[in-house]
Design a protein around this nucleic acid. Structure first.
Lengths: 347, 347
DNA sequence: TGAATCACTCAAAGCGCTTTGAACGCGCAA
DNA sequence: TTGCGCGTTCAAAGCGCTTTGAGTGATTCA
């Protein structure tokens, strides 16, 4: 069922039918009703491609998800982020087109999406320090919103980010307040901007108390369970190992917990752990009394908001750029406690 | 840069340029070179919508991901599945359009994608028993491939599935061989077809040894960490609790592990656990000597394959339907051992 | 009464591409 | 010389929609 058929059915011109359906004022109310009714009855939906061709808009938003080809790794937060964003798109009649591509191929993909006219705007995921994609998107003239930020980018751009530095500083402060001094820091990959900021937060808090950093207790890797496990195991075995861990994701924290328990230690008593918690649906950390003490920020909400910001920007391209900084509250759970008076037995 | 501009640049007609770029034979080799070169220089990409309108194909594939609105839950395997599928699409010039919608809205979304002509085919995720979406898609006339199967669907359709029944029967057999008799079964939601099949495998293996099923030790829930934790905790506290767990996903198994350890028991000694392992990138279960004994099947590979099956079907709609059953080998890890002679202390 | 206004409707152009059917120029056989 | 076939190129139609600019008939005003 297309416009032509529908309008000949109704004995009206395509113009009138199109206008009736798109809410233009120069159509009598009676006709509009008649048209709407017929459209419903025949389950008529304007063809997206034709509509797009005529209007010059695609009613679609692109998400280019970076994947590490080396590890075949895709960050588990994307599912939830996209699910949140998808809600917003669905509510506004937008489609979401997804490309999952290796870091190296990203610029090419952006160029292509633009040249092919597949999308009206983009969400940029996983920004690194001085991310080259930001100037690229600006040059391409596609509206975009960055999930995260990119230090080193001079010009303004739209972004939505968690206040990672503040959150990790606060978390560090709590550990310090509890008497911990040897704090291991298991960060994400530090070419990622968010990881850099978390590190800054951690270092700032440590230095504020006059503590010096121990590079041997700071790591930076892709955030997997086994990264947490291996690191914790190694660090805890070493003499003068950490009494607390500051960790970048619940998945990594689960690995840390495994190591801790395997060594016969007790979480929250012998070893404290604070993690960032993206509030993933399948990995809920508990509500009132969470398992892990954590800085929490729902990545699904972030998806919803980022999508809305992008749609606003598409609707009003000349409106000023928007930015949004979300605070991540620190929720105390069962994984933190005062620093034990005696050093735990190494090994 | 569009066709018209490009061809006037070259002093050729749009016809010739279009044909040169699409590999038609009636273009001289010299012209083809010249055109290709110019296209490259100007970074020309045919506009997707225009091309789609002219050809009647959209060069896009739809994935409709079911989300449980109630739990804001999206199955964590989708990220990896889609990442695998995305590889295949990218290699073949297809886009992927994603809708994340509540179960209840699914039929409407399929109808709409068809009516709007947004996609040339679909992957159907998370089939339930007698899933109504299968007849719907058939009726709509869209090529589709099901990830999983749907018992109760009479007519043929394309699918790609793991042999869940066999895998879970094999896993159960191993536990029984190790002397376990009280085996708790933490299944996924049993309205899901895969969960039903896993249950069948489990029950078949139990009955084959003349064991009767204990409904009190069989559960069925959305596969979260806390589901595993809560269930294990409750079951292990009860008198005559299980000595082994058969579990539907690594996430759930992690919850079980937490409960086991919290109760002072040792995994692989006091309590055995076998789980299904989708080989998620951020939750690798270890290669040679895995942490969990598991039936393993890479959901990323499944994505790759399902996507290829769909593209084949789009290319040759009249070819016979394809189906593919993947076996999931049982890899022995550290979470299984002989049933302990004495019952472990309850609580 | 005629002109101007208004509310509504329409035919046709155009979005950027593919594809049909026609045309063109050339060499070769008759 | 004509005629044919071949290799190559082209003009134009059409995909399904929006939107411009032009009616049309009824109503109002002078």
């Amino acid at each position: 069922m297309n416009l032509k058929e529908l309008s000949s059915h109704l004995g009206l011109s395509q113009t009138t039918v199109s206008r009736a359906l798109n809410g233009y004022p120069e159509v009598s109310e009676a006709t509009r009703q008649r048209v709407a009714e017929a459209a419903r009855r025949h389950n008529y939906r304007p063809n997206t491609r034709a509509k797009g061709l005529a209007t010059g808009r695609s009613m679609a938003v692109g998400h280019v998800i970076p994947t590490s080809a080396r590890h075949e790794m895709v960050n588990p937060i994307f599912g939830d982020f996209i699910s949140g964003a998808g809600e917003t798109y669905a509510a506004n009649g937008y489609d979401m087109v997804l490309s999952m591509v290796d870091d190296a191929d990203q610029p090419q993909v952006y160029r292509e999406l633009k040249a092919k006219g597949s999308v009206d705007g983009m969400i940029l995921h996983g920004p690194s320090i001085a991310d080259a994609r930001i100037p690229l998107l600006r040059e391409l003239g596609l509206p975009f919103v960055v999930h995260g930020r990119s230090s080193g980018e001079a010009q303004a751009y739209s972004w939505l980010d968690v206040n990672n530095a503040a959150a990790f500083a606060r978390a560090t402060d709590l550990l310090l307040d509890l008497g911990h001094a040897r704090i291991a820091f298991l960060n994400g990959l530090e070419k990622m901007d968010f990881a850099q900021r978390r590190r800054n937060g951690f270092e700032r808090a440590m230095k504020a108390r006059g503590l010096k950093l121990d590079p041997g207790q700071m790591r930076s890797e892709e955030m997997t369970e086994s990264y947490g496990y291996q690191s914790a195991k190694e660090l805890l075995r070493a003499p003068a190992g950490p009494t607390a861990f500051l960790v970048s994701s619940v998945i990594v924290a689960i690995g840390v917990r495994r190591a801790v328990q395997e060594m016969g230690l007790v979480l929250g008593r012998d070893i404290s752990v604070i993690t960032h918690d993206d509030d993933l649906s399948y990995l809920r950390n508990g509500g009132e009394h969470p398992l892990f003490t954590a800085t929490r920020s729902s990545v699904r909400d972030a998806g919803r908001m980022a999508a809305q910001m992008l749609l606003d920007q598409i609707a009003a391209p000349d409106a000023p750029l928007m930015t949004r900084l979300l605070e991540a509250p620190l929720l105390v759970g069962q994984s933190t406690g005062p620093c034990p008076p005696l050093q735990h037995a190494a090994q």
